[in-house]
């Protein structure tokens, strides 16, 4: 049945990226939780406070990168979970397209929100 396994390799890059984003997210997610629940309490968040944080280019870039990697990690994770369940054919293509669009929309919306918070849009 070797013929079945004779096409281009889509798995390897995704697998590696999933791990690289994971390593990044571990650090940033821990930082994010710490920042917004222990340093600043979530209940005390104000628009002015958020604006003050987002105006720092470093913080802004970290948050946007956080959004992009988290979205990739999450969307890719969901897609893989479905492939593991035996999703294939047309259904698989449709699911991939829907997930990609949802992910891109999330990144676009999130980046726009971050720009607004920083006062650059």
């Amino acid at each position: 049945m070797a013929e079945r396994y004779s096409s281009f390799t889509p798995g390897g890059t995704g697998w590696l990226l999933q791990r690289i984003t994971a390593a990044f997210l571990v650090v940033v997610l821990a930082f994010h939780f710490f920042q917004l629940h222990f340093i600043t309490h979530a209940a005390d968040v104000t628009f002015a406070g958020t604006q003050a944080r987002m105006e720092h280019v470093g913080y802004f870039l970290t948050m946007v990168l956080f959004l992009v990697t988290a979205t990739f990690h999450g969307i890719n994770g969901v897609y893989n979970a479905l492939v593991n369940q035996g999703l294939d054919g047309i259904q698989k293509k449709v699911v991939l397209a829907v997930l990609t669009i949802a992910g891109l929309a999330l990144i676009a919306q999130g980046t726009y929100v971050a720009l607004v918070m920083a006062g650059w849009a």
């Binding site: 628009f47 958020t50 959004l67 988290a70 979205t71 999450g74 969307i75 994770g77 969901v78 949802a102 999330l106 919306q109 999130g110 929100v113 607004v116 918070m117």
Partner: peptide, 14 residues
């Protein structure tokens, strides 16, 4: 991942 979508939606009030 479910929360991430909700989170961005809430923050969109900015």
């Amino acid at each position: 991942i479910g929360y991430l979508f909700t989170h961005i939606a809430v923050l969109s009030s900015a």
